[in-house]
Amino acid sequence: MLKVNNINVYYGSIHAIKDVSFEVHPGEIVTLIGANGAGKSTILQTVSGLLRSKTGSVEFLDQDLSNVPAHKIVSQGLAHVPEGRRIFLQMTVEDNLTMGAFTRPGSEFDASLADVYERFPRLKERRKQIAGTLSGGEQQMLAMGRALMSHPRLLMLDEPSMGLSPILVQQIFDIITELHKAGTTILLVEQNAQMALSVADRAYVLESGKIVLSGTGAELAESDEIKKAYLGG
């Protein structure tokens, strides 16, 4: 479904992503794990067109996205919940969701909104509230709900558990599993390796811009290297 071939991404002279290739197949949860600064967010931003690779290609549903402008990517069925949520803080909850449906036909808006509200009842309660006044967990739900408004085939989540209490982290992961069961393919970026590996079909481990390990979620969760480096044991 998503094929990233040999990408190299630079910030000026900083070589942030080095020859990275990976794949996500339909129906999978794939996770990219790695320490802070490993290059996880850079990869997701390259897939969604906010950054460009100097080499290689990004293919989604057999279409090359390398030259597709960022604003045309979401309508292909690829939604990106960015790191730090980046909801529109000064707009209401419902207007944020409206922006999520920006590329969709107006006729399906009400149904999409009802779906998102059913999944996130908190958002419905707060629909007229300014998004900046939501708690961290609610903001993450809004960011995810906003992405779902575009009816993605592939949902990319960048550290959805960041800054949340353990209970909220559990809730967010439950939602991820539910979305997956409902048929959404998921590419999950996490520093919380334990949680990510517990839900993932497959995983890639990133270190300083390079993929150093890959395998099934269960394999990596058992690997000694991973245990030492990321799971605190």
């Binding site: 906010l50 402008p69 604003h71 990517i73 922006m99 999520g100």
Partner: peptide, 24 residues
């Protein structure tokens, strides 16, 4: 309006607006 809201979205965060499909 949709366009007006898109403008406010752009004024807050151009990257996030692009992720919504808004042509900045």
């Amino acid at each position: 309006t949709r366009m007006g809201k898109a403008m406010r979205a752009c004024s807050e965060d151009k990257g996030a607006a692009q992720l919504m499909g808004i042509n900045v």
